[in-house]
């Protein structure tokens, strides 16, 4: 079978579909001081999954506020700096008006995913940490 690390080089999704790949990518991102990009991407996916689970509206609101406070509110954070102002203000409105929608972070996740696909992921595939691993 194809070794996992070869599959990781096929696409960002194939990398993020494997725990060992995620671990190695996170180690690389931490070296680049931008591990929040990956955590935010997973937090958005986890938030969307809540809809399918029987979790309370209160917990959804608490989580939406936690994601907003940790990754978007602080304009100096790596995630906040990469998301478009219009996307940030949409999320702020949702949190302030308590309009907690499962898809409220989708656009922000897409923008961060595009950044990773076009920038950090290709650099990771050329990084020492990945080449040493392979």
């Amino acid at each position: 079978p194809t070794p996992p690390y070869v599959k990781w080089a096929e696409s960002l999704h194939s990398l993020l579909d494997d725990q060992d790949g995620i671990q190695l990518f996170r180690t690389f991102l931490r070296q680049e001081d931008c591990a929040d990009l990956l955590d935010f991407w997973f937090a958005c996916s986890g938030f969307r999954k809540l809809e399918a689970s029987e979790c309370s509206e209160e917990k959804k609101l608490k989580l939406a506020k936690a994601i907003y406070k940790k990754y978007i509110l602080d304009n100096n954070g790596i995630v906040s700096r990469q998301i478009k102002p219009a996307t940030k203000s949409f999320i702020k409105d949702c949190v302030m008006k308590l309009h907690i929608d499962p898809a409220m972070f989708d656009q922000a996740q897409t923008e961060i995913q595009t950044l990773m696909e076009e920038n950090t992921y290709p650099v990771f595939l050329k990084s020492d940490i990945y080449l040493e691993y392979t």
């Binding site: 993020l16 579909d17 494997d18 725990q19 995620i22 955590d39 997973f42 937090a43 996916s45 986890g46 938030f47 999954k49 809540l50 917990k59 608490k62 989580l63 506020k65 936690a66 994601i67 406070k69 940790k70």
Partner: peptide, 20 residues
């Protein structure tokens, strides 16, 4: 703050793929 960080961590972990 702890409970917010715990909530975030739980959310991030819930989106992770299961160990193959």
């Amino acid at each position: 703050i702890d409970s917010e960080d715990d909530l975030l961590q739980e959310c991030i972990s819930s989106a992770m793929p299961k160990k193959k």
